[in-house]
């Protein structure tokens, strides 16, 4: 994981959508939310889980590796950036290759969008928009030491197991105390997800779960 990074605790998420709204305010993708908020068992439970770009470290950024246009830059600080606007050809390789389901694509604009850890803020030492507004600390930004100052003894994990393929990421997730730290988190590759109705609660909110925007030309 990166030194100063996002740590996600789905157990604290109350599904309030503050992160989704705040993400829309980010200067590098104004008006579009790059964060995904999924209701895991809609109708039966209030469990929800936010997903930001996990900034994969090893193998480094599969999205960038499969990009045929060399459009996704990984800076030395480990941040996997959104597509370079002059290069992205809108093919969607990154959308389908990402095992986390993160990148979005606008087919009309031939452009990919994804969380870039609010680079306009984090490169100046500020926390990303989502972490700034999260009322429950489900999305935390800082170092592991800072997290442990707030939540003594908390453990985090930053490896995922996708059917035998291990991916280590720059963003971490909180795990219960006592769980072996080096045990990878389940990527859910073999699972059959229960599809839970509409991606967002009914209402006027724009569905953030739709990774594909617009019709092909």
């Amino acid at each position: 994981m990166m030194g100063r990074t996002i740590v996600i605790d789905p157990g604290r998420c109350i599904g309030c959508q503050a992160c989704v709204s705040a993400c829309r305010e980010c200067d590098s993708h104004r008006g579009k939310s790059m964060i995904h908020l999924d209701y895991l068992d809609q109708g039966a439970s209030v469990a929800s889980s936010p997903t930001v770009c996990m900034h994969c470290e090893d193998p480094v950024a599969p999205c960038a590796q499969v990009c045929p246009a060399e459009a996704i830059l990984v800076t030395p600080d480990g941040v996997v950036h959104d597509a370079d606007k002059s290069r992205c050809i809108g093919c969607g390789n990154c959308v389908s290759a990402c095992p986390m389901g993160v990148p979005k694509i606008d087919l009309e604009a031939k452009l990919q969008f994804k969380c870039n850890l609010c680079y306009d803020r984090t490169s100046y030492g500020l926390a990303p928009m989502c972490a700034t507004v999260c009322p429950t600390g489900s999305i935390f930004y800082g170092t592991l030491e800072e997290l442990r100052t707030e939540r003594p003894g908390v453990e985090v994990a930053s490896t995922f197991d996708f059917d035998g393929s291990i991916i280590s990421t720059g963003v971490a997730m909180v795990v219960p105390r006592g769980r072996p730290v080096d045990e990878p988190l389940p990527g859910g590759a073999g699972e059959h997800a229960r599809v839970t109705g509409s991606p967002q609660p009914a209402g006027h909110l724009e569905p953030s779960a739709d990774n594909v925007l617009g019709d092909p030309l």
Partner: peptide
Amino acid sequence: LKLDFDAMAEVCPRCKRLRRGQAYR
């Protein structure tokens, strides 16, 4: 590219997230 999780490309982004979230839960 030796990205062995290529079968994941046949699952939509939202189901990828739901699977991971539900497995975590």
